[in-house]
């Protein structure tokens, strides 16, 4: 199989998923609204003072991002499993990790990238000092692909179970901990006026490693799930 046809397969999978998603907009929009609503709850719960809100802002936004990634995980493989598309993907002569990579890509475009765009709104609501905004967006930009890829592994493993919600969180949330730690530390550094470049580079490294390995894990998970 040459590069040209590989590329065509990748784009076909992505275009199909995008086309389906655009006709089910609520599935795309709801996890994003969820983030905004969760963010809104915190000032109501802990009080609107800027000192406390500003301190927890990064953590709240990132935890909301983790949870919204889990919420949107059903979209990844659920329908494909139910309508038989997954079987066809597994039986396609194309390498399954490549197709999995395409699906991860669409998931990121529809759930990760919008979070980056939403970040300033959330940062404003939580009174995060402006000095941290850029770094927050940067950590989301390099961190959300990790979220999408790891979510795809979990979704692939649990798709045949039909009631994966709580189980999926149990599997995935512990694995998100490094992401949370480095992202929060990066923003903290930016607020203190020191360089956050170390953490951002570390996150970028983790992202590349995840994008390299996760498609194989997703492919293995899907092969088990079509059983």
């Amino acid at each position: 199989m040459n590069n040209m046809s590989m590329w065509r397969l990748l784009t076909t999978v992505m275009r199909r998923d995008l086309a389906v998603a655009l006709r089910r907009r609520s599935d795309v929009v709801n996890p994003l609204l969820f983030v905004v609503i969760v963010v809104t709850l915190f000032p109501l719960a802990v009080g609107p003072g800027p000192d406390i809100l500003g301190r927890i802002a990064t953590g709240v936004i990132w935890v909301a991002a983790l949870l919204s990634s889990l919420l949107g995980s059903e979209r990844l493989f659920r329908d494909d499993f139910l309508d038989g598309t997954l079987e066809q993907l597994v039986l396609s002569p194309a390498p399954l990790p490549l197709l999995a990579f395409g699906k991860v890509g669409v998931h990121w475009l529809l759930s990760g990238l919008p979070l980056v765009v939403l970040a300033p709104l959330c940062a404003m609501l939580l009174k995060l000092p402006i000095a941290g905004w850029g770094t927050l967006m940067l950590t989301l930009l390099v961190g959300t692909p990790i979220l999408s890829a790891m979510t795809a592994i979990g979704a692939g493993l649990t798709v045949s179970l039909g009631r994966g919600g709580a189980l999926l969180s149990l599997l995935l949330l512990p694995l998100f901990i490094p992401l949370l730690i480095f992202a929060a530390a990066a923003v903290e550094n930016a607020l203190l006026g020191t360089s956050a470049i170390g953490q951002v580079l570390l996150l970028t490294g983790l992202m590349l490693l995840t994008l390299l390995l996760a498609p194989f894990a997703v492919a293995a998970a899907l092969r088990v799930s079509v059983n």
Binding site: I153, L157, L175, I177, P178, I181, F182
Partner: peptide, 16 residues
């Protein structure tokens, strides 16, 4: 599959 994904993550989690 999950255990293998986990074992790759353990050093990263530990370090972080």
């Amino acid at each position: 599959i999950l255990a293998l994904v986990g074992v790759i993550n353990v050093p990263i989690i530990h370090f972080s």
